[in-house]
Design a protein around this nucleic acid. Structure first.
Lengths: 198, 198
DNA sequence: TACGAATGTACGCTATCACGTACGCGCCCC
DNA sequence: GGGGCGCGTACGTGATAGCGTACATTCGTA
């Protein structure tokens, strides 16, 4: 999931106006009251409330202070925290053959890690030796075996993993998992992106 | 017309400059790169970073967006919330108070995500309302319910989660999980760090 | 009805925010 | 050494944020 696009809509954030108005009303303050408390002039407050102007951080902070809030608190009210729930089995499903996986993390801006649940039929493998996963440099992967047994091959190395085992490795190396057993294997994988952006 | 107390110091908030600089460095972006990503001119970015000017909310939001952060997250860094310190002693509480957890990822350099498996006894909760987890700004958490039912409380919101459900949210908001059921609940949590401070 | 006191808003003026351009600097490579 | 190319920063200019003042309106009260 290499997110690169601009993340959110910065314009909508300007809409603290209604919020300020609501808070001021809730505190039973007039424009002049809040002006005195915040050190921002009443006309300015009026313009901000109506969205006719975008205050500077300094002024916005003083307004927030006058409302006994931190600026981040005032702003979060208009941003709405990101909470995304993916119900059981409702992730994005991929895969063919004996390898199926489900992406459990949403494609949000700023998302730096991806959680996937892989199911490997007996004898199946992820990617395969000919088509090794190529992750970006600096990426790191953590894999947790939920059920069955697996073999992780990184470069020339070979690691046997059993249910409950957890392995962490640099994901920019060619690697893949194999299911050598006779039962289905389930793997949870966390892929963390590197910091660098180009 | 009721409350009276002057709350805080709004002046210090203006100092997002160093923060922006650190975040930009961590993402390995030049002023012009960030200018393109954010839609704010490079000279303006330079002035903001050096604290020579107080940007407009609109501009500040665009800067935050260019850094893949919400403005409130960017601001929280310079507010009293500098207490980004993780809850004291929670790492030791293995098996205490009905909440046990195990860190599955190693403390490697360059590790930017942490995988933990939590076990919550009936009625238990992670952290608790008085001692909410405070992760670093920009951090994001993905939690997967392995067994039982859980309730995620984040700010004022409440989300019911059942086995197999997966939820992703901004981890720098105060949050905690509760086990309202009569059975033990198991939770896998992936905590992805935000951009590094240098 | 008239009046004082409160409200929120329209008007100018000044400070400064925010832009495009241009400069000095360090680096790599013909 | 002289180009190029990237970086961050100093200019000058237009836009606008933010102030003080003055105005229209609605109340409660005489």
């Amino acid at each position: 999931m290499s997110v690169a696009a601009p993340p959110q809509d910065p314009v909508a954030i300007t809409s603290i106006g209604p919020r300020v108005r609501a808070l001021r009303d809730a505190m039973d303050l007039s424009l002049r009251d809040l002006a005195e408390r915040s050190g921002v002039s009443a006309p300015m407050l009026s313009q901000v409330e109506r969205g006719e102007t975008s205050p500077t951080l300094a002024v916005a902070a003083r307004i927030a202070a006058g409302l006994e809030l931190r600026l981040s608190q005032l702003l979060r009210l208009d941003e709405g925290g990101t909470v995304t729930v993916v119900r059981a089995g409702e992730g994005r499903r991929h895969g063919a053959g004996g390898h199926a996986y489900e992406i459990l993390t949403p494609p949000l801006p700023g998302q730096r890690s991806e959680l996937t649940r892989h199911t490997l039929a007996p004898g199946a493998s992820t990617g395969g030796p000919d088509d090794p996963p190529r992750h970006e440099p600096g990426a790191r992967e953590t894999a947790l075996v939920e059920a069955g047994t697996l073999v992780l091959r990184i470069d020339a190395e070979r690691h046997e993993l059993y249910a409950g085992d957890c392995v962490t490795f640099d994901a920019d190396l060619p690697h893949h998992f194999e299911n050598p057993g006779k039962e289905e294997a389930v793997l949870l994988a966390v892929l963390s992106a590197g910091l660098r952006r180009s």
